[in-house]
Amino acid sequence: MTISVYVPAALSLLLAAISRIVVGRIAPTRAVVFVVAAMLCAAASTWGLVLLSATLLGDTSMVAEEASERGVQLQDPVPQLIGVTAVVLLVSGVFRVVRVLRARRATTQELRAVCSSCGTGELAVVALAAPHAFAVPGRPGRILVTQGLLSVLDGDERRVVLAHERAHLQSRHHWLRAATEVSAALNPVLIPVREAVAFLVERSADEHAAAVTGSRRLVAAAIAKVALAGGADGGVRAWSAALPFVGCGVSARVAALHADPPRPEPLVPSSVLALGVATAIAAVQATMAFYQLVYWLWPS
């Protein structure tokens, strides 16, 4: 097989590194670029694993010998160990995807159940002291908040929360997150991209809320208040501390809202997209090399 079968894995590493570096600086609306690149990388690397696994089906070294006897230089055949490793990675990836999709579906269903016990209308309020707010996708999407969150904020700040969650619903951010979650499940190298997208959609909703309310400082204050009010919630802290990103949390969002509004940079998105396309090309090349191998395996 050619080296191109391994290229998507290498490019995934590169994409992960880039997303770590630029996540704090890029305009939040560019999140979609990372989503597309992550999906291409995940698809290409998974396809590479499929190809490598498939080589186990036939004795490739014999084929290569036969081919070279006939004067055809087949690119280096795949050692069996790599084939087996590919199978293991592939199976564990599929397992993780199933787990992610199940968790997503179950969580959405539970959120909807909570909403439907809270009357009709856009806003669903639960009488809980812990401050939480969620956008619950659906037809129509709803905003689920706790009484605790509403009572720590004033009228303008409550408007921020509503605008932020509406932005998630209107821009269908749950699809962007789902796509990167599945990508990272298939290819764990892409986990930093998933975290970057999770951060960028929050930033994007923050900027939308700032545009709606007319004040970025107000949005920053609302986020800070809710975060501080939730400080006693030890369980949540344990999970968020486990995230690989340190600088991508609430304080980074607040800092970004205190800085100048983000300006779109044309260079980063196009280079990220180019990376995604490169992985796709590599996948096609690997497929062609594989086809050549198959052709020698089963000469009809």
């Binding site: 639960v126 809980l128 707010a133 951010h173 999770a198």
Partner: peptide
């Protein structure tokens, strides 16, 4: 609703990762 929400918030790590929060708690 409060019970349902409480149950939702105390789920395991997989489920927590899915929840898109307005603000997480802090260091």
């Amino acid at each position: 609703a409060a019970e349902q929400m409480q149950a939702l918030l105390s789920r395991g790590r997989d489920r927590q990762a899915v929840l898109q929060r307005f603000a997480t708690s802090l260091s």
